[in-house]
Design a protein around this nucleic acid. Sequence first.
RNA 1: GGCGCCUUGGCCGAGUGGUUAGGCAGCGGCCUGCAAAGCCGCGCACGCCGGUUCGACUCCGGCAGGCGCCUCCA
Length: 421
Amino acid sequence: MRLYNTLTRRLEELPPPPGPIRMYFCGPTVYQRAHIGNARPFVLGMWLRAWLRERGYEAILVHNITDVNDKIYEAAPNESAALAERATAWYVEDTGDLGLGMPDAMPKATESIPSIVRFIEDLIEGEFAYAVQGDVYFRVARDPGYGRLSGQRPDQVEEQEPNPLKEDPRDFALWKANKPGEDTSWDAPWGRGRPGWHIECSAMAEDAFGPAFEIHGGGLDLVFPHHENELAQSNALGHEFARIWTQNGMLQFGGEKMSKSLGNDVSIRNVLDTWGREVVLLFFMTAHWRKPIDFTDDTLAQTKAQVEGFRNVFRSPSEPGGDWAAFEAALDDDFNTPEALALLHGWRDHELLRRGLELFGLGSLAEQKKASSALYDLAQKREDARRGGNFAEADRLRDEIDRAGWVVRDTPGGWSLVEKP
RNA sequence: GGCGCCUUGGCCGAGUGGUUAGGCAGCGGCCUGCAAAGCCGCGCACGCCGGUUCGACUCCGGCAGGCGCCUCCA
């Protein structure tokens, strides 16, 4: 199996099974209901884990929660902890409802403070970081390779609002001194405060996996500065950190990236309620994970039609045939789900198709709901009316069944009832 | 100013130096009392301009348009 590695800008072969393949994916900052764009790395991580296991790997997925952060303080001054806790529960609930299972661990920043503090201490000791007035900053000038992940040239990075505490405008915060309105803080050798954004991931990933692991994931918008800084911090301590960096493309909405900051976000909850989990999952399958994907009603409607198409395969007799090897090859080649999906569309073999769909959490498409006996009676009455030539009555009964959410289908072998799409 | 990515038929979306992607929608037909589902047939696409080549959608260069990032973002 091979995957595109942002760090080397090429496709790279994974070590042969059984691995292990340890994966760390960046999760959301929790201060409101997560949007559907946030679901993309979650879904990708769960699918990759499932696929790697299918291929005989020991695969482990750790997906973190950022539960201390400026955004949370802004959203709930003096009550950020309560908000973060609530929003974490939402996230777990919403991603759980995708029906893909859950990551092997979901560490929270606030529960990883000792590791974070130790990490910063080591960086200071090595003079890769410095404390000033309760803040601690990473000394970017100490890292000659800074920018190797994102391709940024440190001398060209746009200057931010000047921060007189920094030795160099490119330096980034590892620890921020406690400020008014910030209700969460921890003691540290440099004073009471809380971790900066990037250090938590270095600490949590290494807590889970040690100084080196196979795959790091997250959104493409995290490449710089977040992932760049994670790499810099860990490399500064001589740790290899992640070998393969996978960043998923952004979910677009109305021609822009969907994001909480832009206010154009649609929650996972909302999409789940409107379209159902199968449509959401199939929607993500239609685009390659590295490419942007447009969230539009038209696209979702097309996806829904595909969902029905798969259901109908299972409502028809199974026919042997289907190239599993080609399916494997597509997924082994940079996890090309659109190509794998195209193959699935050609399969009529129930067992094989179900096996393929199950890998993506879509095994439910193979399951049929049974109509109530009352509906069966109506359908039989309609059949009787039809046979008697009373088509007006037959159509009336069909409408009644339709209103109950079911569709009557006449086949050569007799009528059947299927759930209305 | 810097870094990176993208541009395929009505829509979504793979892929390849010369050979059918696939799906959705649409049109025609079969089937049906009418439908639904299914089946059969139909589109000959690769942003623009150059170059390399016997031949480019595929390689190279330029241009145009779009997207992401530059220390809050999945």
